[in-house]
Design a protein around this nucleic acid. Structure first.
Lengths: 152, 152
DNA sequence: CGCCTATTGCGACGGATTCTCAATAGATAA
DNA sequence: TTATCTATTGAGAATCCGTCGCAATAGGCG
């Protein structure tokens, strides 16, 4: 259990809000925090069921929203149909390179982005919560396989 | 018709691919290129019908995809349920501030972003086609109305 | 242990998009 | 111009993702 402290926070959070600590919630939490990267609701459901947990689709969705509200998880649209979810590692926010050929997603961290974000928001009287930055294009592998750089 | 050259390119593109030039395609093309900003499929359908065109929902969707494939139009998710579409103005790409309270979208242009994009891609052996950058937060108006800055 | 009520599971529902298929109509050649 | 070939269209069914309603279940507290 490499995410013990976050798990404790999660449980404490639930208690503080009069919410119950259920096995479904813990299983879902563990599953998300075990993931190195973003994952969608359907994949979460499938892998929980595969591990023998009994949990319904609705519960997965409901609790994902709950974790998003409590700031533990981020819900992102990477341009695909489904929402993806990823646990937040505080102070370390990353963005994504998305390959339009093979759908592979690579994370990157760029400290310059938050400075830029602050600047843009100041100029527009906007109070930022978070951002999403995706660069779409071709990954190294697909380039070598001879994929064509877009448009046509 | 302020987008005459793009229109010619579109028609040429169709011909080159053995695709037909239909009134539905032209009407849809004109509608998107008349828009200053992103618009979704439903809005496009509605405004085409309002202008007296006869066109079906399926045709709108089909041809939006066609224009995306041919590089004339970009399909973006701004976090809302629907995809949005915007025509590409070459060499001028903008990004979005999205208010999570009222869903208002403001565009901004930041030249620094493309430099950053180039840098990141170089480091990852990635060949960028385009990016999407959204900053989610509260717009000026919602802040004044006393909306709470997220998380909880 | 027992109660109160938050949470769950199931299945129905809803919105957005895609698909199916028969009818229509561009494009090409004669 | 007309005939022919087949891409495209319209209409509605189907699908996919996510949400909702409600009865049954089960945390958490006294």
């Amino acid at each position: 259990m490499p995410h013990q402290p976050e798990r404790k926070t999660f449980i404490q959070n639930l208690r503080d809000h009069g919410q119950r600590v259920t096995p479904e919630r813990l299983a879902l939490f563990d599953e998300i925090f075990a993931q190195h990267r973003h994952i969608d609701a359907e994949e979460l459901l499938t892998s929980l069921l595969a591990k023998g947990h009994r949990i319904s689709r609705a519960t997965v969705y409901r609790n994902l929203d709950l974790m998003v509200d409590s700031g533990l998880v981020r819900k992102v649209r990477l341009g695909q149909r489904r929402f993806h979810f990823e646990h937040i590692h505080p102070g370390q926010n990353h963005d994504h390179l998305v390959c339009s050929e093979c759908d592979r997603v690579v994370e990157f961290v760029s400290p310059a982005i938050s400075a830029m974000q602050r600047e843009i928001c100041r100029a527009h009287g906007f109070s930022p919560d978070h951002h999403q930055f995706q660069i779409l294009g071709l990954c190294h592998d697909c380039l070598e396989k001879g994929a064509v750089p877009s448009g046509t």
